[in-house]
Every structure is written in C-alpha cells, then in structure tokens.
Design a binder for these strands. Structure first.
Length: 273
DNA sequence: AAAAAACACAACCGCCTTCAC
DNA sequence: AGTGAAGGCGGTTGTGTTTTT
C-alpha cells in the first residue's frame, strides 16, 4: 500500500495561463499554510488546478524574491560557465543564481544564450577539442578552458561523480594510465564536505585511441583533497592520485572551480590536466 | 497595412527519485 | 520490503508578441 492519494481528479481543471485571481488565491493560501502538500493544495485552496501546476506557478513566479527578466551580463557569464560545467542541470545552475528559477534559465538558454554561445563557438576556426562530447546533458566543451590536442591527449573522459560516503564505483569504457595523466577530463564530484576529505570518484572514460580497457575494478581514483576552499567562482589547485591495478597508478593535479561556499552535498567540478 | 516568420516565455508532460504507508 | 503517491526535474509545446517581408 502506498500513501493516501491526495491528487484531485484531472477532469474539470483549468489549464493555460494563470489569472490574477488564481495567483491571489495561491499566494494567500501558501502564506497561511506554507509550501508543500501540493497534491492537496488545490482542493483545500479552492483552485481548479493540479498540484504540479500550483507548485510550478509558486516556485517560478509567485515566490518572494523572484527576479524577473533583465538577466545581467554577469549573470549571463555565470550561466555560460555553469552550463559548460554542469550541462543542462538547470536546477543546479539556478541554485547558483539567487532569485532566478530553473525554468527561466532554461528558457533563456534555449532562446537566447544557447544560440549566442553556439555562434561564438562556430565563429572562430575549428580545432582544439572538437572531438567527442560529454554524454547526456552535454556541457558545452568547445569553450572549456583547458585546451588540448588530440595528438598529445589521447583520451577523453566524461562525467565523474561520487559522494564521500560511498564506496568507490568505477566504470570505464576505455582508459589508460598515460591518458589519465594528460587528459582533458571534466569531473563532477558531489561530496559531503569535510576537511582533508578523501573523495572516491566514479569514472566514465572514453578513449580516442585503442587502448585495451583494463579489467573491471582495477581502476580506482582517489582524490586526496586539501580542502582549502577557494573563493566562490575562483579556480583553486587541488592534487589527486589515481591508483589501481594494471599499472594505472598516476598522480595528477587538478583545478576546481568553486561553485559554493562548501557544505554538505556541495558540488565541485574538476578538470584534469 | 497585412501576412508570415521568428522569438520569447509560461505552462504542460513524462520520467525518475523519494518517501509515507 | 513492497507499493504507489508526491515531489522534482528536464524536455517540449502552445501561444502571445515582435520583427521582417
């Protein structure tokens, strides 16, 4: 048995744009009863809307502190940078822009910024890291800072993720020690913050050259973090170790773009060189 | 001035994860 | 532990507005 159903039937619900009166009802209800329980809210507030619609309306437009429009050039720059690192993880990006919502940023990117960035990229002559892509919600790599040439850096690695509380999980398609030492790697590490934390990293790598993939579980990556948090938005140097069997041991330096002041579940992005 | 095309953005949809039972 | 509702997220669509032809 699941929890009690709270959602109202879908029939007879209003759709489309919200009226000022609906907004008023929603705002005054939430002021009185607080956020949450979206499933029950429409019935209790007397709104002919589904809970999801109420939630969206509140979070994106009615919530206090929401900034609307006029995205500044500073904000634009930050969005571009965060998108480069995080891809289409709009809620994460929005979390770094006070007063902005994921929906607004997503819309802004899809209509304006994405095209702008694409134009910038396609403008200058091709070269550098034109190959490959980070999978899924692909961050915009073409403008990523560490320039590398395919000749010198044979492997591209994508998407690292971990939490400090987890045992290391390693996934790889193809990889090699040399590549790990001289790679163009983008790593997203979610960790619970702690001084001098040792972070276990999940790796997904893709080779451009045919190196024999090491057997499963022979590659492990430990990032020995000197948890000297840099200034928000700054790059700070970190040092890490790649251990594991099959001669894969290697040391590497990395830079971390500080996206937050450091706290539980804070997100860090690493780039290997 | 009118029609067509392009743009901007609010809202919806479906999927996945979390959580209460 | 299993089940199903609620919550959250990203992708997509619909529609009003602006620009171009």
């Amino acid at each position: 048995m699941g929890r009690k159903a709270c959602r109202p039937p879908k029939e007879g619900l209003n759709r489309g744009s919200w009226t000022a009166m609906e907004d008023d009802i929603l705002v005054s209800y939430i002021k009185k009863h607080g956020e949450g329980k979206w499933g029950c809210l429409p019935r209790k507030a007397g709104l002919k809307r589904c809970g999801k619609s109420c939630r969206l309306r509140w979070l994106n437009y009615l919530r206090p502190g929401i900034k609307r429009g006029n995205i500044s050039s500073d904000e634009e720059e930050l969005i571009i940078r965060l998108h480069r690192l995080l891809g289409n993880r709009w809620s994460l990006i929005a979390g770094r822009l006070p007063g902005r919502t994921d929906n607004e940023i997503k819309n802004y990117w899809n209509t304006t910024l994405g095209k702008k960035v694409a134009k910038t990229i396609s403008g200058p002559p091709k070269g550098g890291n034109a190959t490959g892509a980070v999978s899924g919600a692909a961050p915009d790599e073409s403008s990523a800072p560490p320039q590398w040439s395919p000749d010198a850096n044979p492997v591209r690695t994508k998407a690292l993720r971990c939490t400090a509380s987890r045992l290391p999980v390693v996934r790889h398609h193809h990889t090699c020690a040399a590549a790990l030492g001289a790679d163009h790697v983008r790593a997203g590490v979610e960790q619970t913050a702690a001084a001098a934390a040792v972070v276990e990293v999940e790796v997904e790598a893709q080779a451009q050259q045919d190196y024999p993939p090491p057997p499963e579980d022979e590659l492990s990556v430990g990032v020995d973090v000197d948890f000297d948090m840099g200034e928000l938005g700054s790059l700070s140097p970190w040092r890490g170790d790649v251990g594991g069997g099959a001669g894969l041991g290697a040391q590497f330096d990395l830079e971390a773009l500080m996206l937050g002041p450091g706290g539980d579940g804070d997100l860090h992005e690493f780039a290997w060189f």
